Simulated scan of single mutants.
Amino acid sequence: MACGSTPARKVMVVADPCRESAAALQYALSHVVLENDTLILLHVENPNSAWRIPFGTIFRKAQSLPASAGAASMSSSSSSSSEGFGGGGGGGTIDFLEAMKQACGIAQPRLKVRVQRAEMDGKDKASVLLAQSKSHGVDVIVIGQRTTLSNAILGPKRSRSLRGLDTAEYLIENSKCTCVGVQRKANGGYLLNSKTHKNFWLLA
């Protein structure tokens, strides 16, 4: 994308070692960030959470970004570079945030990328993310959103009464800046949720 005279923005992607986070990053790189923007990969560390999915498998299974050779390289490069992250690759481990940063460099070499970590300190994840977005002056938040059975059957609004607001929904409803919840679909497209658009279908 050509940046032209568009003012530089700060785009924050909620970074976790999971497929939803990988999808959010792919969406941000292909549809949100411009060359003069700054991309912030923010991870909220939860000592009580145990990730069970080897991060190396995420990009192997994720489809490459559409119509972009660099994006395809992002997928394959991230697979191999992060193979050791809990995946028994035998080549040592790599921090998943560093793997995501490397993927950004392959997809958009000129993009400014910052990696940030935040502690929960007894707070809930959504509140920490909201506070961090304010402190960093973020213009857009992109967060991966998991599909649940109640959400698929009833839709996001009606299913809230069954499970309450999840992290993505809380940010969408309460952030001062634009927040987009991203679900990667099997056909390569995205299902997007924001304060103004619910279940918006976007082809990759």
Rank of each mutant, 00 (worst) to 15 (best):
T93F: 01
S73P: 01
F96P: 02
D95P: 06
C177V: 10
A23N: 13
F200N: 05
D95H: 11
N174S: 13
V142I: 13
S30K: 14
F55E: 05
S77N: 09
G84W: 02
R146E: 13
A62T: 03
G122E: 08
N174Y: 04
R110Y: 12
V182C: 08
T38Y: 03
W51C: 02
W201L: 12
Q26R: 13
S68G: 14
V113P: 06
G87W: 08
A131I: 02
H197E: 14
S133I: 01
E35C: 07
K176F: 09
A71M: 15
G137V: 04
A107R: 08
Q132C: 15
L34N: 09
M120H: 06
K101D: 12
K61D: 15
I40D: 06
K125D: 07
A23E: 09
Q63T: 12
V13A: 07
P66Q: 12
L192H: 06
A69Y: 09
V13H: 10
F85Q: 04
K101H: 12
F55G: 05
L129Q: 01
I94G: 11
L111Y: 02
K134Q: 15
A107D: 00
H136C: 12
S127W: 00
D95Y: 02
L162C: 07
S135N: 14
Y190V: 00
F55C: 08
S76C: 00
R163G: 10
G4N: 13
M120N: 11
A126F: 06
G87L: 02
Y27G: 05
N199H: 05
S159K: 07
D124C: 13
V115M: 12
R52D: 11
V44L: 00
T38M: 03
M74D: 00
N187I: 02
G91H: 14
V128I: 15
Q102M: 07
V142F: 05
G122W: 10
Y170K: 06
Y190H: 12
G181D: 02
M74F: 10
K157L: 07
T196C: 00
E98M: 11
T93G: 11
T147F: 00
L203I: 09
V113N: 06
N46E: 15
P54S: 04
A103Q: 00
V180N: 04
G89T: 05
G86P: 09
D121R: 15
S64E: 15
Y170C: 04
F55V: 08
N36H: 12
T57A: 08
R110P: 06
S79C: 05
A72P: 00
E20F: 10
S30V: 05
T148F: 08
N46T: 10
S81I: 05
A15C: 09
S127R: 09
T148P: 01
S82G: 15
T147Y: 03
E169V: 01
S78E: 06
K101M: 11
A23M: 11
P156Y: 06
A22P: 01
V32R: 09
G137H: 07
C179G: 03
R52W: 04
T57Q: 14
N187L: 01
Q116Y: 09
A152E: 12
I53R: 14
F59G: 00
E45I: 15
Q116V: 15
S64T: 08
G91I: 06
E169Y: 07
P47T: 03
Q102P: 03
A15Q: 04
K123E: 15
L97E: 04
F200R: 13
